[in-house]
């Protein structure tokens, strides 16, 4: 491991929340590209069977977590207050956010065909979904939190089954745009 990668790993170990690559670069006094390279290096080294610690990279940034293979062993010790129950509407909404995030509320509602305000608020309160202001769309967009990724055993959202099929599908983009225009009438 390069010394920068080792340094970043140390920073992540004491970090009290997910760190963005930009924040890591600031802390370590290096340019963003170097920090990104170092994160990649840690990922390649850690995210395998032979490491107890893995790296999760999501919209909120990067964080260190335990190897998913040891979930059972670690679960008792970690004693996290996770309510495992997710209702069908919540699960559907979470799925749409996972595959299509960052996504606006009208887009989610177009896919589900129903108002999703309450469900989104509930998912946010439970720390599964995060809201941020989109500078261009001038409205909030929603994405999966790093915690939700941990619960799903995902190092990145790209690990979701059929992610490319549902995320980058031009047909879906076109349909969403068309549906949004009819609903506006």
């Amino acid at each position: 491991m390069t010394s920068l990668a080792a340094k970043i790993e140390a920073v992540l170990f004491v970090a009290t929340k997910p760190m963005t690559v930009k924040q890591l670069a600031n802390v370590c006094n290096v340019v963003v590209d170097d920090a990104a390279g170092a994160v990649e290096e840690i990922t390649a080294l850690r995210n395998g069977d032979s490491s107890g610690v893995h790296l999760v990279e999501g919209e909120e940034g990067v964080m260190l977590v335990t190897n998913p293979a040891f979930a059972e062993t670690v679960a008792n010790l970690a004693k996290e207050d996770i309510e495992p129950e997710l209702t069908r509407p919540s699960l559907e909404t979470l799925t749409i956010v996972a595959y299509r995030g960052p996504i606006t509320k009208p887009e989610i509602e177009t896919i589900r065909g129903v108002n999703c305000s309450l469900i989104l608020r509930n998912l946010m309160m439970r720390g599964l979904v995060d809201e941020r202001e989109d500078v261009i769309k001038l409205q909030p967009v929603y994405n999966l939190t790093n915690d939700a990724m941990r619960y799903l055993g995902l190092h990145t959202v790209q690990e979701l089954p059929d992610y490319a099929e549902l995320h980058g599908n031009a047909k879906i983009d076109k349909l969403l745009a068309a549906l949004a225009s009819t609903d506006a009438v």
């Binding site: 335990t66 998913p68 749409i96 589900r112 619960y151 879906i172």
Partner: peptide, 23 residues
């Protein structure tokens, strides 16, 4: 389209809290 996401939700549910990673 909705049907595709319902299918995806079923797969997501299978993963939920099965191989969780702890911080």
């Amino acid at each position: 389209l909705y049907q595709e996401f319902v299918a995806a939700a079923a797969k997501l549910e299978e993963r939920y809290l099965v191989h969780a990673m702890y911080r």
